[in-house]
């Protein structure tokens, strides 16, 4: 098991390297010159050329990549082109925010999605099933920006219960932090809950038609035990896979939701660094996101083994 994890981690390194190379190449292909953008209204060709030299942007791409990689190995992510701030502290400032949002969104998604899917499967064909399906599809199809604005209008402007947007660190004011997380987490969570409910329902229906469920019922086990212990556990594998994929996406930053609720997380950082051609920050964010997706995948593999004893890694 430990060997498996180690092997996966080492095996992931080439992938990560490839991702960094790809991002590096792509950022350099983008039209638009960081120096000109940085100079904004004060741009003039001589100053821009001087600045490019100062930032090392006039060196060959491979040399720039080598220098970046060299720094990375020593834990140095470079400095932001935009305000000369070190990249690592920026990342550490944003990462907890995105993690917190992802955590709450996922919690809401699980709390809503799994029970809804189970109920729909058990009452297959009933009005409840149809209701869950409609709600799930609505959750998936309503765009985040729309739901977000709708929630802000209702809870912040009409009812005045929750501040419309912003972020306060939990260690500064926990109550306010949770309050501010509620709407964005709900916005993101409902979309995920829809997918989770659909997958739970379909997977559970399939399992419920299996022979061993019939056997379990024939043994005289209560319906609750049959469903929650025997069926749901076996139905969990596809659901876990979906959750893993969704979590990977969340950690990359929920761009639109963060924008609507003014949450200073990874998503806004990405957009901002693309617009400003802030290459060092962009590379770091993509690298961290890639690592997160990769780690979530390893975690999902381990969960498979935990759920289904037949799956073993050695």
């Amino acid at each position: 098991m430990i060997l498996f994890v180690l092997r996966r981690l080492v095996g992931g390194l080439p992938t990560l390297l490839l991702v960094t190379l790809l991002v590096f190449a792509l950022t350099r292909v983008l039209p638009g010159d960081p120096a000109t953008l940085l100079l904004g209204e004060e741009a003039n060709p001589q100053l821009a050329a001087k600045l490019r030299e100062q930032l090392g942007l006039n060196r060959p791409i491979l040399v720039q990549y080598g220098a970046w990689l060299g720094g990375l190995v020593q834990g140095d992510l470079g400095r932001s082109i935009r305000d000369n701030e070190k990249v690592s502290p920026i990342i550490w400032q944003k990462l907890p925010t995105s993690l917190e949002l992802a955590f709450f969104a996922l919690a809401i998604a699980l709390l809503l999605g799994v029970p809804a899917g189970v109920v729909a499967a058990l009452r297959r064909g009933s009005a409840t099933d149809a209701g869950v399906t409609v709600l799930a599809l609505s959750g998936i199809s309503i765009p985040n920006f729309f739901l977000g604005i709708l929630l802000v209008y209702l809870f912040s402007i009409r009812l005045d219960w929750i501040p419309p947007s912003g972020y306060v660190e939990p260690w500064v004011d926990l109550r306010k932090n949770l309050l501010l997380m509620l709407l964005p987490a709900f916005t993101l969570g409902t979309a995920l809950a829809g997918a989770i409910a659909r997958f739970t329902r379909n997977s559970l229906l399939e399992v419920l038609s299996q022979d061993y469920v019939r056997t379990a019922r024939a043994k005289g086990l209560g319906e609750r035990i049959v469903v929650w212990r025997h069926a749901l556990r076996n139905a969990a594998i596809p659901v876990v896979t979906v959750i893993g994929l969704q979590l990977g996406g969340l950690l990359g930053g929920a761009v639109i939701t963060e924008q609507v609720f003014s949450i200073p997380g990874f998503g806004r950082l990405v957009v901002d660094s693309v617009f400003n051609r802030d290459f060092p920050v962009l590379q770091a964010v993509v690298l961290i996101s890639a690592i997160s997706v990769f780690l979530v995948n390893v975690l999902v593999d381990l969960l498979y083994a935990a759920i289904d004893p037949r799956i073993r890694y050695g």
């Binding site: 604005i149 802000v152 912040s156 501040p163 419309p164 947007s165 912003g166 924008q259 609720f261 003014s262």
Partner: peptide
């Protein structure tokens, strides 16, 4: 979003 923050 800017307007919503002022309104609230």
């Amino acid at each position: 979003v800017r307007t919503a923050n002022l309104l609230s």
